[in-house]
Simulated assay, not measured.
Amino acid sequence: MADNATLRQLTGMPDAPSALANSALIMIDLQNTYTQGVLELVGVQPALDAAADLLERARSAGTPIFHIMHDAGVGSPYDISADIGQIVERVAPRGDESVIVKNYPNSFVSTDLDERLRALGMENLLLAGFMTHMCVNSTARGAFSLGYSPTVVASTTATRSLPGAGGVDAGALQAASLASIADLFGVVAPDVAAIPD
């Protein structure tokens, strides 16, 4: 039996992660929503630590940074008018870092993210955030479809167990979500150390 290969490998697409020097960093939904209660993610605190490390490296490198927040309205777990919906303090925006509010899993849908990136001449994207199977996956696919080259930093992502179809464990879902991105839609770097300056 032949060894497994990704569609990226079979079609000769690059498999090296993007560098900080020629990328934009997209911080997806790093909100308090995922640190408590029913939506607390498995491994959320280590993922936030890794995201904070990546963010500091990006700031030092002068990398353009975009913070994405999901808003689902007042009273929801994604209520950006309440503490629950705010970005976690240790990865919160500083200075003139852009904040984009979205209402769909794909950060490009009904936002001006694409226009802002094009204005900067950016093609390479570094993605960090939550949830791996939902908004990170959707944004990576959306970026790919728009012609960008996304790199997902796996250690900065996390997800939760799902109840449907007999249940899916968070660890299995995390692995499958990252594998589905790596098959075609983007490079998956294991951790922040794998991202070149």
Rank of each mutant, 00 (worst) to 15 (best):
A154C: 07
A172F: 12
S155F: 07
V153R: 03
T157M: 03
D169W: 01
A182R: 13
A165T: 14
A165F: 13
T159E: 04
L162V: 14
F185A: 06
T156S: 07
S161L: 04
L178Q: 05
G166P: 06
Q174S: 01
T159Y: 00
G171M: 13
P163L: 11
T156W: 03
V168Q: 12
R160T: 06
L178C: 12
L162M: 15
S161M: 05
T157G: 04
S177Y: 06
D169I: 03
A182C: 12
G166K: 08
A176Q: 09
S180G: 08
A175S: 13
V188C: 04
V153K: 03
S177H: 07
A170Y: 09
A175I: 00
L184Y: 07
G166Q: 02
S177E: 08
S161P: 05
A172D: 15
T156G: 07
G186E: 14
A172I: 14
I181F: 10
A172T: 14
T159R: 00
S180V: 06
T156A: 05
A158H: 02
L178S: 05
A175P: 03
L162K: 13
V168N: 10
D169L: 04
D183G: 03
A175F: 05
A172S: 15
A176L: 14
G167L: 05
V187W: 03
I181W: 02
A154G: 09
A182E: 14
G171K: 11
V153P: 10
R160K: 15
A170Q: 06
D169G: 12
S161I: 02
S177R: 08
V153D: 00
R160I: 13
D169M: 06
Q174Y: 02
A170W: 08
V168W: 13
F185Y: 11
A154K: 01
V188M: 02
L184D: 04
L178R: 07
V187F: 05
T156L: 04
I181N: 08
P163S: 12
A165W: 15
A158I: 11
S155K: 02
G166F: 06
G164A: 15
G186P: 05
L162N: 14
V168G: 09
V168H: 11
G167N: 05
D183H: 08
A175C: 05
S180L: 09
A176W: 10
A172N: 15
G164W: 15
T156C: 12
A158P: 01
V188Y: 02
A158K: 00
T157K: 00
S177W: 06
G171N: 14
D183P: 01
A176F: 10
R160S: 13
I181M: 08
A179M: 10
I181K: 02
T157S: 04
G166D: 04
T156E: 05
L162A: 12
A175D: 13
S155R: 04
L173A: 11
